[in-house]
Design a binder for these strands. Structure first.
Lengths: 153, 153
DNA sequence: GTAGAATGCGTGCATACACACATAATCTGA
DNA sequence: TCAGATTATGTGTGTATGCACGCATTCTAC
């Protein structure tokens, strides 16, 4: 009961759990010669987007990654043939990234690995109710930051 | 109700909340010309340790950082005069890092900034009960990974 | 219509990071 | 006692990441 005196325990727990679980998942993926997490995340978002394509900026907003990193990852994915980059016909400044058939195949192959990693290193230690609670709570934090970013435009 | 069909929503929420909040907090610290988070974390752990000193390895185990990074950060902190490094009298291989009076002063000056950042960008959006729940749940994940690491030795 | 502001994107550069290796010290089993 | 295994740490090196900047395009006010 005394340990809730630490008003920053939740933040510290997020920091540590994120660090530990992510490291373990990434190592599993690397051992299996799968694409790294950043690439997976980009392919996932593209695949879920309408038309399987997204402007670079929208991609950066959805993914966990910074705009610079998105630019580099998409360039790498393009070299690998998993993604195509075409100029946006409606806005000459923008670039549309589209996932290719090859990219989708890779995504289908990698997804089970990634999901197994999350199950093994994270979900496994939590009840369904705990996961629901975490998701609901943290979503408020995420939404607030998203709103602030939208405001800044 | 249908959105709890996603068994990985909690993991995704941790990923996003961590990314968004951490970025915001770090930017605040940088704007205030404070020491970066890694340095803060190291000083914090040292200050809380018995005798205000810790072997490099123990430091790495407690902090969120990798062993390599700890080594470099401590070297930097030593150059700044915030930390002293002395050989462990009981084990010639080990190095003891000790926080100096200057380091403690810096820590006292920085702590309010950091705590304000956590309050502003994270705690603020959660109730006390939600924070308690998050801490308790994620602690299970942390403990499990810690146990696995200990086992590997 | 046009000049200037704003936007979307990519890239040079400096920094940060982890992996693998090197070094020094300690432990272990005869 | 002593050779080999183990442990604690530091560091060279390649890779990754973010910031600041530059270029091209679009928008806006007149």
């Amino acid at each position: 009961m005394a340990d809730d005196d630490d008003p920053f325990g939740a933040w510290r727990a997020v920091l540590l759990a994120h660090s530990r679980a992510l490291r373990a998942i990434e190592q599993d993926l690397a051992s299996a010669d799968a694409i790294p997490l950043g690439c997976y995340d980009v392919l996932l978002e593209l695949n879920a987007a309408p038309g399987r394509r997204l402007r670079m900026q929208d991609l950066a907003a959805r993914a966990v990654l910074s705009r610079t990193r998105i630019s580099r990852i998409v360039a790498e994915l393009e070299r690998a043939g998993y993604v195509e980059r075409d100029p946006d016909p409606h806005d000459g400044r923008a670039t549309l990234a589209t996932i290719t058939a090859t990219g989708r195949a890779v995504l289908r192959r990698t997804a089970p690995l990634y999901l197994a990693g999350v199950e093994q290193h994270f979900n496994r230690y939590l009840t369904r109710a705990q996961r629901r609670s975490i998701e609901t709570s943290l979503q408020r934090v995420i939404d607030a930051h998203q709103a602030e970013l939208d405001l800044r435009r």
